[in-house]
């Protein structure tokens, strides 16, 4: 991990008086799988949205692929792939049509698009479904297709916001295989998840609570630091304690993730 692909310094995002992301500083290296963990409303989605250019930061600095989030969002957009929490493909389009559409808006040339389409259909086991309407696919397939569409333009950085919620265990493992493969080819992957087993698949994880970083390290280092067997236990220890504290201070927000 020599080159950094995402850097933030004291990055802050407020919604009115509510601080969704509070002075977050991270450095993510190329080819790294970087996990974001946190309870609902911890600020994971907001942070990812700021980095993708969907939201403007309030204060602080951030660069993505070397471009400034304040001034170069158009260039950032060409260098990232994004898979949002909500399933964001067109249900009334077929698998192939979805791929063609996203290829089109990323400006892929026709021959390149054909090649990528074949690749996605093959690698994600979707070739039998190329002409089926997306609405009828099992959920695991939809998620894989969404990932495929997010990676269509071969972005050096991939943002995945809870990509595996609702996916069955086998499909989830296959999904993670793909993520590992992609990272193996040098793509940086930033991923949020609710599955603590998945935290263990990441190279490093960031644990957030009410917008702040409360831990940032490799899963093994975190486990040995807190003398826990699993990331689940580490998380409950860390976040559980924080929630207890904020509750006693009577400030616990309890609001859902801001839009």
């Amino acid at each position: 991990m020599h080159e950094t692909s995402v850097t933030t310094r004291e990055l802050t995002r407020r919604f009115g008086r509510f601080v969704a992301v509070d002075r977050v500083s991270i450095e993510v290296g190329s080819g790294e799988i970087f996990g974001f963990l946190g309870a609902n409303g911890a600020g994971k989605t907001t942070l990812i949205r700021v980095l993708c250019g969907l939201l403007k930061p309030t204060t602080g600095e951030a660069t993505v692929a070397g471009y400034d989030v304040y001034t170069q969002s158009e260039r950032i957009k060409q260098n990232i792939g994004y898979m949002s929490q909500r399933f964001s493909l067109y249900e009334d389009l077929t698998v192939a049509e979805n791929i063609e559409f996203y290829g089109g808006i990323y400006g892929l040339a026709r021959t390149k698009l054909r090649q990528k389409e074949k690749e996605i259909l093959k690698n994600f086991g979707l070739h039998r479904h190329a002409d089926s309407l997306t609405a009828g696919l099992p959920f695991g397939f939809k998620q894989r297709l969404a990932l495929g569409c997010a990676m269509l333009h071969e972005p050096p950085i991939l943002f995945l916001d809870e990509p595996t919620s609702g996916v069955d265990p086998r499909a989830r493992r296959e999904f993670w295989d793909t993520i590992h493969e992609t990272a193996g080819r040098g793509t940086t992957v930033l991923v949020t998840t609710h599955f603590m087993e998945e935290a263990e698949y990441c190279n490093r994880v960031l644990i957030m609570h009410v917008g702040r970083i409360i831990a940032l390290d490799t899963p093994d280092a975190l486990k040995s630091r807190f003398e826990k067997r699993t990331m689940q236990e580490v998380f409950l220890e860390l976040v559980g304690k924080e929630i207890g504290e904020t509750r006693t201070r009577g400030q616990h927000g309890e609001q859902g993730e801001k839009p």
Partner: peptide
């Protein structure tokens, strides 16, 4: 518990 965060 589907879609609910680990602490909850």
């Amino acid at each position: 518990t589907t879609g609910v965060d680990p602490v909850s």
